[in-house]
């Protein structure tokens, strides 16, 4: 039987103006999580809050999540102090299909970089070549820059203001890649929906598979309540769609199936 876990907060580090990296001890989640999956974390509000897994350490039995403040619940979780106990359900959802990838191009925007960090580390373990591109509004919004640069074979950073990396968006970085660099690659993208849409159009135009991580307001997190649905094209019918559950059928979807 699956169960809900009690996890202890081990470390809480502020990463930028609106997000922090929280490390919890929970050997089961550390053991089972795969890149792209998420966990549901309790707070004093009614429902749990979903966060993508940023990293795991199965030796120490810990996992980490990036927590961005979007409301009262996430603000409360972000302000937890080491030693705090929370209820955690997870790992939940599907994961990035990394097994058969020959090469990976990962594109993260804002706090979307947290789950990609996990994918980068796993790709490095599997000796898969990676190009990692992250985009932020400005340098003070950036996070996981050094860590992700260390784990990627090619690294690019962009900012709207230009105070770090390439001035512009992640698209300006993608356009700099030449055919040799992107050939045979699988693209993974996590971030604002408009960014993922643009990244997937770029990938589809040059014939690459692109997997995106969709985000919805959730309740149960395990596929029972049907509140977090995403419009996904019906197989073999491009003009028809179904409502798939972000929490249980996703959060990772092939971009060709997504109705944006």
């Amino acid at each position: 039987m699956k169960k809900e876990h009690r996890a202890e907060l081990i470390d809480n580090k502020s990463m930028n103006s609106d997000s922090s990296l929280l490390v919890f001890r929970c050997p089961e989640i550390a053991e089972e999580s795969r890149p792209g999956q998420f966990v549901n974390v309790s707070c004093s509000k009614f429902l749990k809050r979903p966060f993508g897994v940023n990293d795991t350490d199965s030796i120490n039995g810990t996992f980490s999540i990036g927590v961005r403040e979007v409301g009262e619940g996430s603000a409360e979780i972000r302000s937890l102090e080491p030693g705090a106990l929370v209820d955690v359900l997870g790992p939940l959802g599907n994961y990035f299909p990394l097994e058969n990838a020959k090469k990976l191009i990962m594109v993260g925007g804002g706090t979307g970089v947290y789950p990609l960090h996990f994918a980068l580390k796993e790709a490095r373990k599997a000796n898969v070549q990676t190009i990692y591109i992250c985009g932020f509004r400005c340098v003070s919004d950036s996070c996981l820059v050094d860590e992700c640069e260390a784990f990627s074979d090619r690294f690019m950073i962009t900012s709207d203001t230009g105070d770090v990396g390439i001035r512009g968006t992640v698209m300006d970085a993608l356009y700099r890649l030449n055919e040799n660099e992107y050939n045979d690659a699988t693209v993974l993208s996590v971030g604002p929906e408009i960014m993922m849409k643009n990244v997937s159009q770029w990938a589809e135009n040059i014939g690459l598979d692109c997997f995106v991580s969709l985000e919805r307001r959730m309740a149960c997190g395990i596929g029972m309540c049907l509140v977090c649905t995403c419009k996904i094209k019906t197989k073999n019918h491009d003009d028809l769609y179904e409502n798939k559950r972000c929490c249980a059928d996703g959060p990772i979807f092939n971009s060709r199936e997504v109705v944006w």
Binding site: K45, F46, L47, G73, R217, M218, A219, C225, L226, V227, C228, T229
Partner: peptide
């Protein structure tokens, strides 16, 4: 389709 409210939630599935 979901909104958390004090001690409960709204759904419009």
């Amino acid at each position: 389709r979901v909104a958390e409210t004090p001690s409960g939630m709204l759904n419009s599935v």
